[in-house]
Design a binder for these strands. Structure first.
Lengths: 179, 179
DNA sequence: TTAACGCGGAGTGATACAGTCCGCGTTATG
DNA sequence: CATAACGCGGACTGTATCACTCCGCGTTAA
């Protein structure tokens, strides 16, 4: 299993659809179906982004999500921590005090400060986190935008707008593609 | 659970006991009991270090392990990869091709190259791995040595030598501390 | 009133981790 | 030459997490 989970992958992919303010206020179901992932699973992810101040939620029908701040101020590290809760790269078990020559009574010099192995892992974790802190939703969106044709964002907006409008209309009428 | 597991923690702790050549050739059971961890579990870890060329194994009674190269040439990254097998930080599910507007037939521009989110995670993983590659068994041993009193390595050598000598003698005689 | 929304809690199946047990071939020692 | 400890690999167990689902609550526009 990977350290950075599918929850983060899903979260970032769906946050990217919110970068363009013209997207309005899609629901988590809208985003999940636009992205082709499980709606009920995504519904467990977005409340965490809301509590972290990454996204703003609106209640009731016509409710949904929008970014709580400019995408250039939302780092990937922020998203990862919001969804996974600052999961450490390494969990030190404090093995150092269990050396047999200590006979179950480790001296102070052996247990004070941070374990030497733990320190190495903490530096690696710091390097990883600093790398993630340099990337933002805006920087990822820019990469995607460079690859996609100009027509793509328009198509996505159309899909979203049609879906939001259909919340209270097309459910009582027919589906767009007929019965 | 953490990305870098207890196997790595146990492995590094026990490799540190092999840094001093005067330790001879302790068995995995010797190392496990010296370190206060499960012997049968450590016995699953050291064969991986052997296959990676970090450690040399000797068969038969009086067999055991010694470092296969100088501790300054054994990086922590090497140890992690040997034990865990280059486990990725993030496993991309290629969600990008599942956008609803593609209608199950994603265009080439959407699926060529590395996914923008995956690229971010790969850079973070690279930063982590580069950090781990800068640390060696020797550098960790130096930190530990700075904290321990001069008498400590001597005590450890004594414990190990007594144990290795006891392999064929004290089993047939009494235990050192009486019956 | 209805229906869709956000949200939280409980539950499920699969996988990985920590740890154990057993058996094989090898090798110094009594 | 038998023994005992060694390295090594395979099969196994229990637990925790992950991906995912289901249900019910209060909220809100049509």
């Amino acid at each position: 299993m990977a350290h950075i989970t599918a929850r983060v992958e899903y979260g970032i992919h769906c946050l990217l659809w919110l970068v363009d303010p013209a997207s309005g206020q899609p629901s988590s179901r809208d985003l999940a179906e636009l992205q082709g992932i499980s709606p009920s699973f995504l519904a467990k992810i977005f409340p965490r982004l809301e509590k972290a101040g990454i996204v703003q939620a609106a209640d009731g029908i016509r409710g949904g999500y929008r970014l709580a701040k400019p995408p250039s101020e939302i780092t990937v590290l922020e998203i990862v921590d919001a969804i996974e809760g600052h999961k450490p790269l390494f969990e030190c078990q404090e093995i150092r005090g269990r050396c047999a020559v200590f006979d179950n009574e480790p001296p102070d010099w052996a247990t004070t400060g941070v374990c030497g192995i733990h320190a190495v892992m903490l530096r690696a974790e710091k390097a990883m986190r600093e790398s993630l802190a340099q990337e933002t939703l805006a920087s990822i969106a820019a990469v995607v935008e460079r690859k996609a044709p100009n027509s793509f964002p328009v198509e996505v907006q159309g899909w979203l707008v049609e879906r939001v409008n259909g919340r209270t209309s097309s459910r009582s009428r027919k589906l767009p593609n007929g019965p």
